[in-house]
C-alpha cells in the first residue's frame, strides 16, 4: 500500500501542510517558544522534514537522530505536554486537509512511536 505521503500528493502537499501546521504551532503558547527561530524559512524547512517523516515520505532520520535532534529541547524542559500539543496540531492539520480518519490514525501511530526518542527516555 502506498504511504500517506504519496496519497496526500507528495512533496507539494507537504509544502502546503507545513504552513497550516507551523501556523498552529506558532499560535500555541504551550510550545511556540520552541519554534521561534529568527529564520522562519529555515524553521519551515524543519517542519517539512517532520511532516514528511511521520507521513512516511522519503526521510533518512533514525531514532538516534531523533534523540540527538531533540536533546537540547529536553534540556529546556520538553515533556509529554509539549509532545501532545504537537500531536494535536498534526492531527488538526491532516483533518483540515481532508485526510481520511483511517490515514490520520496511521500517521498518529507513527508519531506516537517516536515519543520515547523525542523525549529522550
Amino acid at each position: 500500500m502506498s504511504s500517506v505521503y504519496e496519497q496526500l500528493g507528495g512533496e507539494p502537499a507537504m509544502a502546503a501542510a507545513v504552513e497550516l501546521f507551523y501556523r498552529k504551532v506558532l499560535a500555541d503558547d504551550r510550545i511556540s517558544h520552541y519554534f521561534e527561530d529568527v529564520d522562519m524559512d529555515r524553521q519551515a524547512a524543519k517542519q517539512k522534514a517532520f511532516l514528511t517523516m511521520v507521513c512516511g515520505g522519503p526521510s533518512h532520520y533514525s531514532g538516534k537522530d531523533m534523540r540527538e535532534g531533540h536533546r537540547h529541547l529536553v534540556k529546556r524542559g520538553l515533556n509529554d505536554i509539549h509532545f501532545n500539543a504537537v500531536a494535536e496540531h498534526l492531527q488538526g492539520t491532516l483533518e483540515e486537509l481532508g485526510v481520511s480518519a483511517d490515514l490520520v490514525r496511521q500517521v498518529m501511530a507513527v508519531a506516537e512511536g517516536a515519543r520515547a526518542d523525542v523525549l529522550n527516555r
Binding site: E19, Y22, R23, L26, M40, D41, A44
Partner: peptide
C-alpha cells in the same frame, strides 16, 4: 502576518 494568513 504569517499567523494572520499570509503565505511565507
Amino acid at each position: 502576518l504569517f499567523l494572520a494568513g499570509f503565505s511565507l
